[in-house]
Design a protein around this nucleic acid. Structure first.
Length: 306
DNA sequence: AGGGAGATTATGTACGCCGA
DNA sequence: TCGGCGTACATAATCTCCCT
């Protein structure tokens, strides 16, 4: 397999104008000399030649003009072997990983050396974009690590507070749990739902939610029963900005027969999703920030019918 | 149209650093 | 000295999309 530099040299230094690299029976790259010192590289398939070059080759580097069509694996494999850099998506970012391990977001016309390193300087805008993207990915990872840490610690506290029936069983059910040993907010840290339930039963969901910042968005009385729609700041969420806690919307209601207070989680109100015409997007939100809309969502309706 | 390989994401372990 | 955190490295789960 010849490298970009091989093709560049063979065309520039000889009386040749075109060369073809065969990648797969339906895919090739066509190298065309368009000036005494510049070679364009086009993607070629059964459907013909792309009208825009994928890359332009120069003496010391090449420019990458677009993110290979449909993340074309064969082309990307070729680029990673021959170009010594790789292209990959991560959480919505198009990232280029260079031979020296550094990364940058992709941008049209980025210069890369034949050894697979960035030919700097890159435009300030893209440098900043890369910084932001890489930082977000790092923080996302760190947030998950914090989650695992606190989850494990809460798990240990639970184990210590619990007395188990039979330690040989794969699924151990606690015989007794001294919940008073457990801090209330472990309810947000324990992964096991049935373990969380001990804390909820002990403290009561009302008391737990009362410790959190929350406010009533809407109230309504339906058939004599009072309902509140409340928005709660969820702690320990792995939201990007620790100053901005994630919100959770709950319907608070009173069970008419037992007069127990009951909470039911509903999706947060999202204006944009609510306007969507796609059903599954509309399912991700309540259609308005009201008790009735929340009840309608629960009943899988668009309007609440008593 | 479906299978499956490769790509991406989720989940985790190990370990060292840092400040109280 | 230790709780808490960040990073590197590893593996499992899930998704995408190419190719037959």
């Amino acid at each position: 397999m010849k490298t970009f530099k091989n093709y560049y040299n063979s065309l520039i230094h000889h009386q040749k104008y075109v060369a073809k690299e065969f990648i797969f029976e339906t895919t090739s790259l066509l190298f065309v000399k368009i000036s005494p010192s510049k070679v364009n590289c086009y993607e070629m398939s059964n459907w013909g030649l792309k009208d825009q070059p994928m890359a332009s080759l120069y003496q010391s580097h090449f420019k990458l003009h677009y993110w290979p069509y449909k993340q074309n694996r064969l082309v990307r494999n070729y680029l990673s072997t021959v170009g010594k850099f790789s292209l990959n998506w991560s959480h919505g970012y198009r990232l280029v990983t260079f031979a020296n391990g550094s990364k940058s977001v992709f941008f049209k016309g980025m210069k890369i050396t034949y050894t697979g390193r960035p030919k700097r300087p890159y435009p300030k805008k893209q440098v900043q974009e890369s910084k932001t993207a890489l930082n977000e990915l790092r923080e996302r990872k760190n947030a998950f690590q914090r989650l695992y840490y606190h989850r494990a610690m809460a798990g240990k506290r639970f184990e210590a507070a619990a007395v188990f029936e039979d330690d040989n069983k794969r699924w151990r059910t606690p015989k007794y749990v001294d919940v008073s040993q457990l801090p209330m907010d472990d309810v947000f840290k324990l992964q096991n739902v049935s373990h969380r339930k001990y804390i909820i039963d002990h403290y009561g969901i009302d008391a737990i939610l009362a410790t959190l910042d929350h406010h009533v968005i809407d109230s309504a009385t339906i058939r004599g029963n009072p309902y509140d729609l409340i928005e709660v700041d969820i702690p320990f969420s792995n939201w990007r900005d620790p100053e901005v806690n994630q919100k959770g919307t709950y319907l608070r209601m009173v069970n008419p027969s037992t007069s127990e207070i009951h909470f039911e989680g509903v999706p947060n109100y999202d204006k944009w999703l609510a306007r969507s015409r796609e059903k599954d997007e509309r399912d991700e939100t309540i259609l308005s920030p009201t008790v009735r809309a929340a009840l309608a969502w629960r009943d899988n309706e668009t309007r609440y019918a008593i």
